[in-house]
């Protein structure tokens, strides 16, 4: 295991922010650490990096105890926590160069990182003039500078445009598949984690609700068909009669369990044939809240 924690607990005053967390992050995985804002994701990451001192439990990275092997561990970890930590009065290149001094990385490596995150053009611009997306990319370049075995990224796609998000996703996949890295990535977006993670841990109110491989989560997280139509209540009755499972109804839309493309087409045809106008019909992922409900209601395996 690259990251292994046991009974990790952290209190802010009287409030317990992380409760007895036991993470298992295998080597070569992209581990999606999923949870709503305020669930304790950033706190957990800061505990992993020893920026916060845990009150209970222990942390092992690369099977080494953190306290006894702090420097050895940190030399193999690259991290990006919350907002990227960037000196605004320095240029993008100088920010990397400064970190290169501390990590004894070469100038060539700095240039490679700049081109990797497509900042070569803007390298000599002051970082305070960067857009949020550029800052985020510079933050990722800083995390990758030491060529770490483990990358810990806290909401790295925040503030990125869709192209940027896709690039980061592809980059992380390449790092794992071709360079044998392990990535620990936090997010509050299920869709984002689903697209790249091999493993997933779900945290809510400081507690780990689910941990396992992505395919295990997919079994729980069934997508829905979201239908906007006239007279949703009657339409729902019609669908129920035709043995579709209706999950949710309100004045504007209804949702049924997604089965397949063909079935979705059949629902559309059925509604049309019975005089309901379908304004829209599409597949949606369950949002996190519903997923949490499902998970908490699923008996523990």
């Amino acid at each position: 295991m690259v990251i292994q924690t046991e009974g990790l607990t952290f209190n802010f005053g009287s409030q317990t922010v992380v409760k007895s967390l036991s993470l298992q992050v295998p080597e070569g995985s992209i581990y999606g650490f999923l949870g709503p804002n305020g669930a304790g994701k950033t706190t957990t990451i800061k505990l992993l990096l020893n920026l916060l001192q845990s009150q209970e439990g222990n942390i092992k990275l690369f099977d080494l105890d953190f306290h006894a092997n702090r420097q050895e561990i940190l030399s193999q970890v690259g991290s990006l926590i919350e907002q990227p930590a960037i000196y605004g009065h320095l240029t993008g290149r100088e920010n990397l160069q400064n970190r290169a001094i501390l990590l004894q990385a070469s100038k060539k490596r700095v240039d490679e990182m700049l081109s990797l995150v497509r900042l070569s053009q803007a390298a000599d611009k002051k970082a305070s003039k960067y857009s949020l997306g550029m800052k985020q990319r510079l933050g990722i370049a800083l995390a990758l500078l030491s060529d770490p075995k483990l990358l810990i990224l806290d909401e790295p796609t925040n503030g990125l445009d869709p192209n940027g998000i896709i690039e980061i996703r592809e980059l992380l996949k390449t790092l794992v598949s071709e360079h044998n890295k392990t990535v620990f990535i936090s997010s509050h977006l299920l869709g984002e984690i689903e697209r790249m993670a091999t493993h997933v841990g779900i945290i809510n109110n400081g507690e780990l609700l689910f941990q396992g491989e992505m395919k295990d989560l997919e079994a729980i997280s069934q997508p829905l068909v979201h239908i906007e139509t006239t007279n949703t209540v009657d339409a729902a009755n019609l669908l129920t009669k035709n043995s579709y499972t209706v999950i949710e109804i309100n004045d504007h839309y209804l949702s049924v369990t997604y089965q397949s493309k063909e079935k979705t087409g059949q629902i559309n045809a059925l509604l049309n044939k019975n005089g309901y106008t379908v304004y829209s019909i599409h597949k949606v992922q369950k949002d996190l809240e519903k997923l949490f409900l499902d998970i908490t209601q699923t008996p523990a395996k």
């Binding site: 800061k46 990096l49 020893n50 920026l51 702090r70 420097q71 050895e72 561990i73 940190l74 030399s75 970890v77 991290s79 926590i81 919350e82 930590a85 970190r99 501390l102 990590l103 800083l142 030491s146």
Partner: peptide
């Protein structure tokens, strides 16, 4: 946070 997560004491 970055200064104190460097592999430097």
């Amino acid at each position: 946070k970055t200064l104190f997560s460097l592999p430097i004491a």
